[in-house]
Design a protein around this nucleic acid. Structure first.
Length: 204
DNA sequence: ATCAAGATTACCT
DNA sequence: GGTAATCTTGATA
């Protein structure tokens, strides 16, 4: 029993707060997915906030569609989308019902059952240690490693299949802030949050 | 029915 | 540093 497993699952109230607050507070927390027998777990080290009201980069900006419906739930649900014909990305829905705000999980530091994540991601065993740093250092990569796909979109993070558990609060000076990555609109919002100097970030 | 864009990644020089 | 791959979604006809 590793120590983080005795910590508490994050509450509905945690997720229902304002999206940038939740985004920052998710850093250092543990994402856990219960597989058949072995749990997959990793520390969240990089996130981005998206806000449907005035943020043109958010999928929810243009209103409800079949794809983005999940993003308008109340905080504490998972929103998964498919992009570039190849990758799934997972988000934590935040705020009140109908708001359309969510936090994209961009990078994770793997903690347990590396062999399963490695197999999920590469379809084989580890060839060299350099592949560890590349395992979950990006939104598409971590979904592959955790085997997260669209079938999990809309799932409740207060359930037992996939959830996030609490961890020690980070010091303010350990957190970095920047513009978001890979978008073409509303590019100046400083809504990317990351743990400074963590080796598992999507960009140096 | 057709089309363009995309919250990315891997592989190339 | 540049770009091809790949297909779902949402918009337009």
């Amino acid at each position: 029993m590793t120590d983080f497993q005795s910590n508490k699952k994050l509450s509905r109230a945690f997720y229902k707060r304002e999206v940038t607050v939740v985004a920052k507070d998710l850093l250092g927390k543990i994402l856990l997915k219960n597989n058949r027998k072995y749990p997959l777990a990793g520390k969240i080290v990089e996130v981005e906030a998206y806000h449907g009201d005035f943020d043109e980069a958010a999928h929810s900006f243009k209103g409800r569609t079949k794809r983005t419906e999940v993003m308008f739930k109340e905080g504490g649900y998972l929103y998964v989308y498919f992009t570039y014909g190849a990758h799934f990305c997972c988000n934590v829905v935040t705020g009140k019902n109908g708001q359309g705000t969510a936090v994209l999980i961009r990078a994770i530091e793997p903690l347990v059952n590396f062999d399963i994540m490695i197999n999920n991601r590469f379809g084989r065993k580890l060839r060299n240690e350099n592949e560890i740093i590349n395992l979950t250092s990006g939104p598409g990569k971590l979904c592959k490693a955790f085997n997260i796909d669209k079938s999990l979109s809309g799932i409740d993070l207060l359930g037992d299949k996939i959830f996030i558990i609490d961890n020690k609060k980070l010091k303010e000076k350990a957190i970095g802030i920047s513009k978001r990555i890979g978008i073409t609109r509303s590019i100046d919002l400083p809504w990317r949050f990351f743990i400074k100097d963590n080796p598992f970030l999507s960009r140096k």
